[in-house]
Design a protein around this nucleic acid. Structure first.
Lengths: 208, 208
DNA sequence: CTCCAGTTTCTAACGCCGTTAGATTTCCTA
DNA sequence: TAGGAAATCTAACGGCGTTAGAAACTGGAG
């Protein structure tokens, strides 16, 4: 009994080491350096051992993506603990972009279109849910009834992603991108509020 | 004399054929199928011939990216010839996302972070400039003075990119993504106008 | 027409990749 | 301590981008 549990523990341990090694290579040297042989070498095993823990490279990468989202979620939430909802929103935008800038390669893999869309969606869900929750409290605080919460959330998510991507895509520095994200978020939310108040003035109905 | 010009013409012709073949493979089968050997096969040459026309695969891909931006620019401009500036803006957002949805693989390569950032920026410049021009006329039409035109433009560009990416990133269909893009653009522009009018009420100054 | 120079094109190979089969070693148990 | 299962390694496959060097074709001079 105890021997098999030890085996399982060792197994889990090397699996964890593989993930950490992969993460380290990815963050320090980029996606191009992330090869099975390289990872195996770093954990002092031969390449096929990796396939005892992951069906293939894609599965390993998916694990990195999931890890990345967990990391991002905790960092962003932890850094944006403002009392005011609007400040919290603003802070979230800024911190999201900061994360993208501080972990460019990880962020890149997290949004790599070549990893299966469904799986990517799945591992990103907790982060999206957190945004959805914040957006809910925001809309309640401002008496704004959003026609479709999911749509509104996806709009914000997409916007943040797009502006964070500017950081690598062009010459826009991270600080500037953070300001742009704050500004865009501010503008979108303000736009929604304006829409809502306009609607309120003429007839009771849903937003936009 | 005439013989060397004919040689040059033939040379340019095969180069064009290579690009077209590459584009065809990319659009119909995706980036994974885009290999030098495959392209060479399609133009009925052996692989090394490709290297007489392009320094390496990256250079060829950059050509596809440039082609993609030209295609997108003409399609979007041609489809959004509205008289009203706001309608034109709205239409531009919608058409941008439509293009992304109709050429998913090309669009993916156009925004692939692994292609050199400077080169990518360079070939995307004409499209960005067109957006900048439209934004200028918009701000003039609404008496909105944008603090930094380039920043505002990059915000819009990033937002459109992010929302267009939702199309592949999640379950969001293209039609829905188009509506979201229109909505986000509308909200951002409305936000800027609101900012400007607020500023106007208290003191003359720049926006945001 | 023939032969030669120069260009174009191809074949073969290098080193890398992800991945798998089969031999080998290691470890527990009976 | 011998045998069998588990873990691990070596070697290989096919494919990738890329390059060197052989082969074939082209055009003009004797």
């Amino acid at each position: 009994m105890s021997i098999s549990t030890r085996r399982a523990r060792e197994r889990a341990n090397t699996q964890e080491r593989i993930i950490e090694a992969a993460l380290h290579v990815l963050e320090t040297e980029g996606a191009a350096a992330l090869t099975i042989r390289r990872i195996a070498n770093d954990v002092e095993y031969s390449a096929p051992v990796v396939y005892q823990h992951f069906a293939n490279k894609d599965a390993l990468i998916l694990e990195l993506v999931a890890h990345g989202h967990r990391l991002m979620l905790t960092q962003v939430l932890q850094a944006s603990q403002e009392a005011d909802v609007d400040r919290r929103m603003r802070c979230l935008a800024s911190e999201y972009v900061r994360f993208a800038g501080e972990h460019p390669h990880l962020y890149q893999v997290m949004n790599d279109p070549t990893v299966d869309a469904d799986e990517r969606r799945r591992v990103a869900e907790p982060a999206i849910d957190a945004l959805k929750e914040l957006l809910t409290t925001w809309s309640a605080a401002h008496d704004v009834v959003l026609a479709d919460l999911d749509e509104a959330c996806e709009t914000l998510w997409g916007t943040l992603y797009g502006i964070a991507s500017l950081g690598h895509l062009s010459n826009v520095g991270n600080d500037r991108a953070r300001r742009l994200a704050e500004q865009a978020l501010h503008a979108i939310l303000l736009g929604w509020r304006t829409d809502a108040s306009e609607k309120r003035q003429q007839a009771p109905g849903s937003a936009m």
